Simulated assay, not measured.
Amino acid sequence: MECKKVKQVFKLVGIKGHGSFEAFGVEVPALAQQFLTRSKEVESRSSTEIALFEPKKNINHLEGNYYVGLIVNDTLNEVPSGMEYIEKDQHYVTARGKITDISNLHLHLLNWAKEQNYDRDLDSYIVETYHPVENSEEEVEVYLPIHS
């Protein structure tokens, strides 16, 4: 599993959700399915699904915000009702792997970032992009925000 540091710009249109961190595994995919039923309303959309997650800052931080949506190719001035346009320009550490191994992917990336002495930015959203793979299970690319 290759880890690396990148500077990345994400442009997306998505729907905001909020819930307990423990329930993200169920709530996020459910909201993503709801969003996808309206995806044709999004101009300049790509086929890449994306999710943003508020990082859990400490053990007492029990709830957080998240967004699910699609990457868009252009800056948008108008978006469908109930959706938001978001642009993130940030330094990240990133790794890609099978979606069924997402917990280990996050853990491996966290450990690698710590070994490299990267300082996590807990005020910026964690980003995940989802990539169907032909004849295989979906892959996810995880981007953990760091201070540059």
Rank of each mutant, 00 (worst) to 15 (best):
E41M: 12
E43Q: 14
R45A: 14
R45I: 07
S47C: 01
S47N: 13
S47V: 04
T48N: 01
I50L: 15
L52P: 00
L52I: 05
K56L: 07
K56Q: 15
K57F: 00
N58Y: 07
I59E: 15
N60T: 11
N60R: 11
H61T: 05
L62F: 11
E63M: 10
G64S: 11
Y66F: 15
Y66H: 07
Y67H: 06
V68I: 08
V68F: 04
I71Q: 13
V72C: 10
N73F: 06
N73L: 12
D74F: 01
T75Q: 08
L76Y: 04
L76A: 11
L76Q: 09
N77W: 02
P80Q: 13
P80S: 12
G82L: 08
E84F: 05
E84N: 14
Y85N: 06
Y85T: 05
Y85L: 03
E87T: 08
E87M: 11
K88H: 05
D89I: 01
D89F: 02
H91E: 07
Y92T: 07
V93D: 09
V93A: 11
T94K: 06
A95L: 03
A95E: 05
R96N: 06
G97I: 05
G97K: 05
K98L: 09
K98F: 04
I99L: 15
I99R: 13
T100C: 07
T100M: 03
D101A: 13
I102Y: 09
S103E: 14
N104W: 02
L105F: 03
H106F: 15
L107C: 06
H108S: 11
L110A: 11
L110N: 14
W112L: 00
A113D: 10
Q116E: 15
N117E: 13
Y118G: 09
D119K: 05
R120D: 02
D121A: 12
D121S: 07
D123G: 13
S124C: 02
S124T: 02
